[in-house]
Structure formats: C-alpha cells, structure tokens
Amino acid sequence: MAKYLLLKHYRGAPAPVNDVPMDQWTPEEISAHVQYMQDFAARLEGTGEFVDSQALSPEGTFVRYDGEGKPPVTDGPFAETKDLIAGWMVIDVETYERALELAGELSAAPGAGGKAIHEWLEVRPFMGEPETITE
C-alpha cells in the first residue's frame, strides 16, 4: 500500500470546468456537494483506504525566525500568493492507478446546476519507509 495526498486548492490550480463560486450556488446545491464529500470519505473508510481529510481556512500568516531573543516576524496574508491550499484527503491504496481513479471521483463532486465541478486535484505520493531488503 502507498499513501497519497489529494490536494485541493483555493488558488493555483487550473480553472475547473464548472467554474462558479460557491456563494452563487443554490443552498440545495451546496448541501448536495457537502453530502457527496461526506459519502466519499465514508465509502473510502468502508474500503479500508481512508486515512485523513482536513480543510484549511484561506487566511494564513507567514512567520519566520528573527534572531536570538527576538519574537518571530509575521507577515501577510498576501493577496498575490499564487498557491493557496484549501484542504486535503490522504488515502492509502494498492496502486498509483487507484489513487488517480479516486481523485477523479472526488473531482466529480457536484457544483452549480447539480453538475460535476471537474475540479483539478493534485495527487502527491507520500515518502514511504525504507525497505529492509534492498540488495
């Protein structure tokens, strides 16, 4: 098994096919979308492939060390930041092909007009553990 991160972006991914902001959807469409996401996670738990799912607030702060004895410097948020992560799902699957298949299904979540959003998700493999036998 290998773990993959399915990454969802607020900004930075190519535009989805059904590109309507969520606040322009009907309340029923939003409910349908939320339900789809919950069902998807529940289904993956049932297949033994679910690891984690989290959403992130769009508001972020940049922080860095500013030298001995000084408080850290903070900056931002920056409106021009290109890559803004919205959330993720971590899956544990047999193959890379399975990871792509599941990302495709997640991207089919319904949006405006009850139609699939076709949102671009980024699939990133986790670093694994070193194998014992390598020679």
Partner: peptide, 15 residues
C-alpha cells in the same frame, strides 16, 4: 504499524 486509522484497518480486515 501501517499509520492508518483503526476504523480503516477494521474495514480492511472485515472485507
């Protein structure tokens, strides 16, 4: 040992 939630592993085993 596999770094997955217990509920996920329980499903994997029962399947």
């Amino acid at each position: 040992a596999h770094l997955v939630p217990e509920a996920t592993m329980a499903q994997r085993i029962s399947r």
